[in-house]
Amino acid sequence: MNFDKIRRFLQLLEEVQKNKATDIIEFELKETENLFALITLGEMVGYANPPVSITLSLIPYMEREVILMTNRAVDSNDKLSDIASIMEVE
């Protein structure tokens, strides 16, 4: 029982460190995915858009990117804190 608890604790510590080792990449990944969504679904946001066939064909597989884009659209002027959370300023 106790052993399990210690193991769980160590696992959590490992996860903390794993997050530490990937948080900035993850942030950049999301930015790139958002860009991908903006480009493919640009029609909706008023960007230059690719042929509609490309968009339609991709949409079914782009849930993650659609979510990201919608989140970013809601807080488009509100990214500062997210960046701050990842970057160590002080």
Binding site: L56, S57, I59, P60, Y61, E63, V66, I67, T70
Partner: peptide, 12 residues
């Protein structure tokens, strides 16, 4: 396309 979206999307 609509059917595919419904099949593939979990959250939206």
């Amino acid at each position: 396309t609509r059917v595919l979206i419904k099949e593939n999307y979990k959250y939206v």
